[in-house]
Design a binder for these strands. Structure first.
Lengths: 244, 244
DNA sequence: CAGTGGTCTAGACCACACG
DNA sequence: GTGTGGTCTAGACCACTGA
């Protein structure tokens, strides 16, 4: 079976993964040695190691120096890992939550000094600002603000396709190519205005994510603030011990 | 200068890092090509790539296919990446914060049903519970609770060596070997008791981390709750788009 | 001791960006 | 086309584990 133009290691990764799931590869939790896998898949050991590294990194297998490679203990939970960047809509769908967007407040204006600093653009450069509430049923669950430098997004881009996620919009356009997001995590008490927007009591604790979205070229293409009402979304992160 | 027994790639990583900091390596943000670095450090290109991968992963450099390797845009903030698990003490030291531990409340007792579930042990199995406040100067900045199954930690382990971090204790003992931590992130308003402990107003928003620490064998060796007063620690996470 | 994963090398070819 | 990073190979040696 010939595959696409994917890297060899990627293909091997998927084959090993499939072998683990079907139980053909792992005998009592132990995988064949790297040398044996190398022969079986007819690739170099380096490629096998590349594939196993990916699987180890995503928590599928565990490697023990001088012992062997083993399938990891049963996955702890299914949930929203913060490591991967996905839109709130995609996330909600995954956990079986129906969401829709409230009225969006869209403005083309000059960046404030703070915003310019966060976006690494010149002060007063034009930006597109999008603010909206996300609801499930009639219940507000999040308030999102995106600030995007004008070159990357214009008001006309926000057509029928816009259901609340600037991220999905970028992915759909394929342009700019996205790299990663640097996200600060903090708690914040709702002020009166936020409480009114989210229909909660003033002073209630919210989870606030402050994110800078980088293109693959290293430009900041979006600065966003997200406020989450507790209880609807669960965010977690897998933290690894040591190593560089 | 001869180094320790560290992997070559690790040493090269540090040398490149130092070269970037002093400005000797990067000319106008651009690093030498991999081939040139390979010659300069007298190692194979694979080793150079290994080193650059580490630096890329930790956000120090950006690599552009067909173009070159560049020093990453100036680090937005000094803070703690959540991806890597490190003790609060280590973290504080890194960001130049002096911390010490308040009086620890230590108890050997039976696990509550909730705790037993979180630790995946039998109900009422013996656990060691450690609760304490972390201060900087006289200012409380965090409240930590650790619940550890008795087999992994006993009261006698908490000798002079204990300065507040169960994690560091495990690392120091080298046993059990640690794997990763699964951490839930949520905001929480301080109740009266927490407010008293942390000397803040009742109702103030705290960042709460609820973590299960796994050994390399997949056993849960610690269940912890951490409450952080905003403003002293900054937590962030780098979120990647798509890919495996 | 034998077998495993961890590191490193030298060389090759491919995919991409830019002039 | 030229130069860059991305992938892959074959082989070597080291470090660790467990019988």
């Amino acid at each position: 079976m010939v595959r696409k133009n994917l890297p060899l290691a990627q293909q091997v990764t998927e084959e090993i993964l499939s072998g683990i799931r079907t139980g053909d590869l792992a005998r009592e939790g132990a995988l064949p040695s790297e040398a044996e896998l190398s022969q079986r898949f007819n690739v170099s050991r380096a490629t096998i190691r590349d594939a196993l590294s990916r699987l180890e990194h995503s928590g599928v297998v565990i490697r023990k120096h001088g012992v062997g490679t083993f399938v990891a203990p049963p996955a702890p939970v299914i949930g929203a890992g913060l490591e991967e960047l996905e839109s709130l809509e995609t996330l909600a769908q995954r956990i079986g939550l129906e969401t829709h967007m409230g009225r969006a407040a869209i403005a083309e204006r000059a960046a404030t000094p703070d915003e310019a600093a966060c976006l690494q653009i010149a002060p007063a450069d034009p930006v597109l600002s999008v603010a909206r509430v996300i609801l499930t049923g009639k219940r507000p669950v999040a308030y999102l603000i995106d600030i995007v430098p004008a070159p990357f997004l214009s008001r006309s881009d926000l057509g029928d396709a816009f259901h609340g996620s600037v991220l999905d919009l970028f992915v759909q356009k394929g342009q700019p190519a996205l790299g990663h997001s640097y996200t600060n995590i903090m708690p914040e008490a709702a002020d009166d205005e936020m409480a009114r927007r989210l229909k909660i009591r003033s002073g209630e604790a919210l989870l606030k994510l402050e994110a800078q979205l980088y293109s693959r070229e290293g430009r900041i293409v979006d600065y966003s603030l997200s406020y989450f009402v507790p209880g609807y979304f669960r965010f977690h992160v897998v933290r690894r011990v040591g190593k560089t």
